[in-house]
Amino acid sequence: MLFGAPQYLVSGLTVGATYGLTALGFTMIYNTTGIINFAQGEFVMLGGMLSVVLLKAGLPLPLAILAAVLCSALAGCLMERAVIRPVGRAAPVNLVIITIGVSILVRGVVMLIWGKDTFALPAFSGAKPLRFLEASVQPQSLWVLAITLLVLGALKLFFSRTIHGKAMLACACERKAAALMGISVERMAMFSFGMSGFLGAVGGAILTPITLTSYDVGVMLGLKGFAACILGGLGNPFGAAAGGLILGVLESFGAGFISSAYKDAFAFIVLLLLLFVKPTGLFGGPKSDRV
């Protein structure tokens, strides 16, 4: 009955890390601006696609990834400056629609420039699988999990120890008060878009050796990442990462033990059930109005 369970767990964690990294990007922007950025999946795609393109242009792999990640972070900043800030204090729902527009635009531009093909990236340290219990693990999966944990740790430090991190949290709590304290709310918003571009692109670049990439991978990732956010509790970075991992493992076990035809359904059914019981998500605190 339990045949293959270790393998399902490993596969689930690897895929889950993708969702988790995307979910982190959502959380980042939500925490500073209150917007759900539906172009988050496009940042992931940009990270992967730009790495592929730069690698083909002759850069060595680490440099190509670094450049791709920086470009995506820049794209994030640019997005805030060019389309979010000019709208000013519009209702969040309007801004959310704008992010959907941006995602379609980015997808279209990438498709026009680099075409509709799927691309692969070489694994960072060979493709020879390691045996672990009964499961075989790709070295790249370890890279993905390690980098995800590293990013998570760095974020924790950033928000609790640095002045910029605290300033971003302050903007999330109360924009006006933060502005009165001398924090540039607009700069913080731009910064958060840049960071989530960075996070998404890191995810895209480290995952491409496993999952391949194409101009439209962002759509599904964005959706799953958003679901992971909700599962973990919107606004909680650790909830987002954990939500992603749980979602991935649920899918993998569902496909393995019940039926692969309904793989996508299991995760969403569990999500719905959870929201009935605990609407704030697994790790979301009770919602309270600020006085």
């Binding site: 596969s11 895929v15 995952l207 496993i210 999952t211 391949l212 991978v217 496909a255 996508d264």
Partner: peptide
């Protein structure tokens, strides 16, 4: 008789099941 989605990026679960 296993199935995967057009956008899926990992089929190890299906293949493990087939192996079993």
């Amino acid at each position: 008789d296993e199935v995967y989605g057009p956008k899926d990026t990992d089929m190890t679960a299906q293949l493990t099941k087939i192996g079993g």
